[in-house]
């Protein structure tokens, strides 16, 4: 793979919390425009891996490159890096004291130094994109979980990220609210957004993923196209997991 093709390159990543080794020599490549879905049981280290990509967790060892820039280099401006890496959390993490629109505007104003008018215009555009133009002036507490998560996606998109990280974005939602969020993610994928998605939604993985990674015990057990991983899993653990889930 050529250097210019790579969006995220994770090489020999390891991460320990005290004596507990959560990630062991993880290597992952994410090509520009591709959708990588990471599967695995709880505690497999997939969320920690994702959080290492925008340095919410500090890697214990290894290297991570985003668009060819090494972010694990201590000289890297982390805030600058994070502008281009959007993240969506399981618990949405909207700012509860701000309306949906202001949630989307805040970082634009503070980080990108956009004017109020421009930030507002972009906020309304992104909210419309996730189907929530009508709810711009609602507070998070006045929105359903699915709506909150869509606002969170709009908030990340307003920063014009080069890659989006989804950390179990639908796990905290009631089943009937999951679809709206997945639809938004599907559309994003179709528009060519580079995405790294940690999820338990198998159907979504099958439909949308370009590349599927199965992790367990802090290592990548198996990876490949959805066909390879879902229909012809090579490892016992992968088979067990897929059988158990579906």
């Amino acid at each position: 793979m050529s250097e210019t093709d790579s969006m995220v390159s994770i090489q020999h990543l390891s991460k320990s919390f005290g004596d507990t080794e959560v990630l062991k020599d993880v290597n992952i490549e994410v090509k520009k425009g591709s959708v990588v879905v990471v599967l695995g049981p709880s505690g497999s280290g997939k969320s920690t891996m994702l959080r290492c990509i925008n340095l919410l967790e500090k890697p214990s060892g290894g290297h991570i490159y985003i668009e060819g820039n090494e972010i694990t280099d201590p000289k890297t401006d982390i805030n600058k890096l994070r502008e281009h890496v959007g993240m969506v959390f399981q618990q949405f993490n909207l700012f509860p004291h701000l309306t949906a629109k202001k949630n989307v505007m805040l970082a634009q104003r503070k980080v990108l130094k956009r004017s109020k008018e421009e930030a507002e215009q972009i906020a309304l555009k992104e909210l419309a994109r996730v189907g929530l133009a009508e709810r711009a002036d609602y507070l998070p507490s006045q929105l359903s979980g699915g709506q909150q998560q869509r606002v969170a996606i709009a908030r990340a998109l307003a920063m014009e990220p080069h890659v989006m990280l989804f950390d179990e974005a639908t796990s905290a939602l009631d089943p009937e609210l999951v679809r709206g969020v997945l639809d938004v993610m599907r559309e994003l994928a179709e528009e060519g957004m580079t995405m790294v998605v940690v999820t338990h939604e198998m159907q979504f993985a099958k439909d949308v993923a370009d590349h599927v990674i199965f992790m367990e015990g802090g290592v990548v057990v198996e990876e490949g196209t959805p066909d390879e991983v879902f229909d012809h899993p090579q490892h016992e653990r992968t088979k067990d997991f897929l059988g158990h889930i579906s």
Partner: peptide
């Protein structure tokens, strides 16, 4: 985490 992931200091 949400603030920091948006690039805020």
């Amino acid at each position: 985490e949400a603030s920091r992931s948006l690039g805020m200091t």
